[in-house]
Design a protein around this nucleic acid. Structure first.
Lengths: 334, 334
DNA sequence: CTGAAAGCGCTTACAG
DNA sequence: CTGAAAGCGCTTACAG
C-alpha cells in the first residue's frame, strides 16, 4: 500500500528528489522512468531508481512533462449531445485500458448544449481530439490554435476508417431476423433528436443494403419522439402501408414503438414485430420483453484504441480485424 | 469567426508573440489577459493587448500555466461505476457553465471497473477531486502524491455539506403522494448493484424520515435485479405483507417493479402503486406510464458549482439556498 | 504604471 | 554509460 511521503512538508516529490536519493542525475531518472530508447542504463542503476521512486511515492508532474515534451498524452473524445449508447460504458472502459497501457489517458466530454462554456480542449491540450460528428470549422480552428495536432474526423482526410459503434453487422442481423420471421415490408425507426447523427445514418444504411440484398424494399428512415403521440401515429401509418417489421435504432426506440403498439391493442409479433439494438436494461424490463441485438462492445473498444494509437504513435493498424459478431437476442416482440 | 493564424508555420502563438505585436512585455500581456488584481494597466494598453491576442488567435498554453501557477484549474468529478442518473447530464451541463465562468473546467470520469488503468487524476493534475463515494485510502494517497490539494468527500472533514443529487425533497414527495393516495405500508426499492451507494442510502433515509413523520412504519430498503426474477418474487412478498406502495429509487427501478406487477396480472394503482424518480424517458414509454418526480437539476448543478468554487477559490457559499422544489408527475401507476 | 528575471518540473539534444 | 544545460511557456514577486 502506498505510503504518503513526508506528511509534514506537503511539497511534492520531484524527479530531483529521486535523483538525489539514488545519487544520479535528474536526466537518468527520466531515462529509466520513461524507458527512453537509445539509452543504456545498467540494470543495477535502473533497479535503484525504480525502487527509490516507488519508496518516495514519486509521480511525474504531468504539466511539466506536457510543457517540455509538447505532448500531453491525453486523448479527448467529444460525445454527442444526445444520450449515448447504453453500451458505451463497456466500450470506453476497454478503450481506456488499452490506451492506458500505452501511456495515454482517455477523457470523454459532452459539450454544453449551447456551447456557452469554453471547450475542454482549451484546458486539456489533448494530443488528439475525436468526435462522433465532423467538427465545425471554428471548432477546428480553435483546436489548431490550442496546439491539437490530430483531429478526427479530419476534414482534410475523409478517407480514414470509421471507428465508431457504427459497424454494420448489427443492423444486418436485425433485418435478417425480421426477414426470416416472414416480414417483407420494413421500416427503420430512430428518435427525432438523433436522426441526423452519423450513427443513425450508418446503421440505417447498413440495414438498407441488407434489405436490398434480400430483395426487400429499402426501409425508410422514420423518426418518432417518445414525448408525444408520434409513435402512435407512425405505427398506425405503417400498418396501413402494410409494414409489419420495425427495425429500431436502439432499445429505447424499440420501447417507444412497442409502447405505441400496446396502446393500440396490437399483438407482437403477430400484428407487428419490433427489434431493438444494444440489449439494454429496458429491453428486459419492458412488457412484452424486447427482441434485440447484443454486441461485443469490448472488442469494439479495443479497435477504437488501436486506431487512436495508430494516429498518435504511428503504430501500424492491426490487421483488418474481423468485426466482432453480434448476437440475436430474441424475446417477445419478434 | 476565428482565423487560423499563419497556416504555414504551425508554431503556436505565445504570449511573447502578442507582447511583441503590441510592444509591451510578456508580463503585461499576462496581467491583462488574466485580469490580475493589483495591477493598474491603462485602458488603451489593455485594449491593444486584447485586440492583438484576438487577432493572432492566442490561446494560453494550459500546461505552462499549470506548471507556473501550481494550479491546473481542472475539477475532476469521479462518477460511480453504475449507470448514472438520467438527469445527470443537465446537472453537469449547468455546473460546467458556472465553473467555466470562474475559469475552471469540469472533467467527469468513471473509473475502469477493475481499476486496471491509472486514475485520471495522475494525468490531469486537478485542483480538486470530487467523488460520490468516499475514496479509499490508497486513492487518497495517490491523489496527495499527485499534488491534488482538495479532495471531497474529505476523510478529515466529515462535516462538509453533501452536494450530490441526494437532496431529500424528492423522496419526501414520493412518500407524501403514496400516503395521500391511501397507502399505509410502503417499501423502498433499489437495484442490487447500487443499494450501497450513498445516493440510495440518502434517499432511503429521507423517505424513512418522512414516513415516520406521517406515522407510517419505516419502509424497508429492498433490492432487486432486473435481469432475474427477483422483482417478481419481491412483488409477491410485498403483497403478502400488506405492502401496497412502492417508492422506487429511480424510474428504472420503478419500471422493473411495474414490469413484475404486469406479469403477475396486477392492476396499478388498484393492487399496487409504484412511483419512480427523475422523469426519465422510460417513465413515459412504459405501459402503464410511470408516476415519477421531476427535479430541477439545473439548480442543483449550480449549487454543486458554488460548492466547488467555495473549495477551490474560498468563495463564500451562497446563502443557505432554498432547495429547488421537485414536482410530482402523476401518471398511471399511482 | 511597466519590465527584467527567476522559477515551476520536466525532456532532450549534446558533451564528455 | 552518465551529467550539465538549455528550453518548453507561462506566473509572480520584485525593482524601478
Amino acid at each position: 500500500m502506498a505510503v504518503v511521503p513526508e506528511p509534514t512538508t506537503s511539497r511534492r516529490v520531484t524527479a530531483l528528489d529521486v535523483a538525489r536519493e539514488v545519487g544520479v542525475s535528474r536526466a537518468t531518472v527520466g531515462f529509466v522512468l520513461n524507458n527512453t530508447p537509445g539509452q543504456t542504463i545498467p540494470e543495477s542503476t535502473r533497479e535503484r531508481v525504480l525502487r527509490a521512486a516507488e519508496r518516495l511515492g514519486y509521480r511525474p508532474n504531468s504539466a511539466a512533462r506536457a510543457l517540455a515534451s509538447g505532448r500531453s498524452r491525453i486523448i479527448l473524445l467529444v460525445l454527442p449531445d444526445w444520450p449515448v449508447e447504453f453500451r458505451m460504458r463497456d466500450y470506453l472502459d476497454e478503450a481506456s485500458l488499452v490506451l492506458d497501457k500505452a501511456g495515454y489517458s482517455l477523457v470523454t466530454y459532452t459539450r454544453h448544449p449551447d456551447q456557452a462554456a469554453r471547450p475542454l480542449w482549451e484546458s486539456l491540450n489533448p494530443d488528439l481530439v475525436l468526435g462522433t460528428l465532423p467538427f465545425s470549422s471554428p471548432d477546428v480552428a480553435s483546436m489548431l490554435a490550442c496546439g491539437v495536432r490530430e483531429i478526427y474526423p479530419d476534414p482534410d482526410r475523409p478517407d480514414l476508417p470509421d471507428v465508431s459503434l457504427a459497424f454494420s453487422a448489427g443492423p444486418e442481423l436485425q433485418v435478417d431476423h425480421l426477414h426470416e420471421r416472414g416480414h417483407r415490408k420494413l421500416v427503420y425507426a430512430a428518435f427525432t433528436e438523433t436522426r441526423a447523427s452519423s450513427l443513425v445514418i450508418a446503421r440505417h444504411q447498413a440495414a438498407s443494403d441488407r434489405a436490398r440484398l434480400l430483395g426487400l424494399a429499402t426501409p425508410d428512415l422514420e423518426s418518432v419522439d417518445y414525448r408525444d403521440d408520434s409513435p402512435d401515429v407512425a405505427v398506425r401509418r405503417w400498418l396501413d402501408a402494410g409494414i409489419t417489421g420495425v427495425v429500431a435504432f436502439n432499445d429505447d426506440v424499440a420501447a417507444a414503438i412497442a409502447s405505441a403498439a400496446v396502446r393500440a391493442g396490437l399483438r407482437m409479433p403477430a400484428d407487428i414485430a419490433v427489434i431493438g439494438h444494444d440489449d439494454s436494461p429496458i429491453a428486459t424490463m419492458f412488457v412484452p420483453a424486447l427482441s434485440t441485438i447484443r454486441i461485443d462492445t469490448a472488442a469494439l473498444g479495443r479497435g477504437f484504441a488501436d486506431f487512436v494509437l495508430h494516429r498518435v504513435d504511428r503504430r501500424p493498424l492491426p490487421a483488418p480485424r474481423t468485426s466482432p459478431k453480434p448476437t440475436l437476442v430474441r424475446r417477445e416482440t419478434s
